[in-house]
């Protein structure tokens, strides 16, 4: 009891400290006072990269190297899930649950699964024009596979094909970076023409990299879900 009250007091002090420090030092909704790096991104982003979505411009073009590192972290996490749950799986070809999903759900999943994949692809192909991009589209694709898993008790993803897709897509990302290094002298530098902002085929290397990121994120999240679902109770 004493421990709990001490913890509550400490947490209340923490809450007050966070809230009042923020409210004093950084007033909410203040106009931009610092002329930091954001101004460069905002005022020159469209001319530099050709992408009208500035978040995409930062994620893929200005900070593309960070994104490469992030995709690596995601890959390591997926590998870690697979390694931690190694030899806890059940042999392939068996049903996962006792009760099967009903006819309505199975038919619906057969109709809706391609539509969900198409929606995910739409999100990451249009990443430089509209809100969305590789991470969101990849998450939608992983949700589609999760739906397939829930509705069909015998469904298993083909691990070899998934690993191959993931490797090819990851290598595409790295190869685009190395091509930039060879052609212009900087890793991940935009070596394609920018085009006119607002069109689908514009913004240089951004659509290529975002498609690669989308497929990679989708494959890795599906791999995580698959590894966790295949574990026996």
């Amino acid at each position: 009891m004493i421990k709990k009250s001490i913890a509550l007091i400490l947490i209340a002090i923490l809450f007050v400290a966070i809230f009042f420090t923020l409210a004093n030092d950084l007033p909410f909704g203040d106009n931009r006072t610092t002329t930091g790096v954001s101004d460069k991104y905002i005022y020159h982003g469209v001319n530099d990269t050709g992408a009208s979505n500035l978040v995409t411009a930062i994620v893929v073009n200005y900070r593309g190297f960070d994104t490469l590192g992030e995709v690596t972290v995601l890959f390591v996490a997926a590998t870690g899930v697979g390694a931690v749950l190694y030899n806890m799986g059940r042999p392939a070809g068996k049903k996962r649950k006792k009760t099967e999903a009903s006819l309505i759900v199975r038919t619906g999943s057969r109709i809706l699964f391609p539509m969900m994949l198409l929606f995910g692809a739409y999100i990451f192909v249009h990443g430089h024009l509209t809100p969305g991009g590789g991470f969101q589209g990849g998450a939608v694709i992983a949700t589609a596979f999760l739906f397939k898993y829930v509705s069909d008790t015998r469904y298993h993803i083909d691990h070899n094909k998934f690993t191959a897709t993931e490797s090819v897509v990851g290598m595409t990302f790295a190869l685009v970076g190395i091509m930039g290094l060879l052609l212009t002298g900087y890793f991940l530098f935009n070596f394609l023409p920018n085009g006119s902002p607002g069109e689908l085929l514009s913004a240089g290397i951004i659509p290529i990299i975002y498609v690669a990121i989308g497929i990679k994120v989708g494959a890795e999240l599906t791999g995580i879900l698959d590894n966790m679902m295949e574990v026996e109770q």
């Binding site: 982003g45 500035l54 930062i58 994620v59 900070r63 960070d66 994104t67 992030e70």
Partner: peptide, 10 residues
């Protein structure tokens, strides 16, 4: 400001 949004997306 788009910079925090890019970081949070990560």
């Amino acid at each position: 400001d788009p910079l925090p949004q890019a970081l949070v997306l990560t």
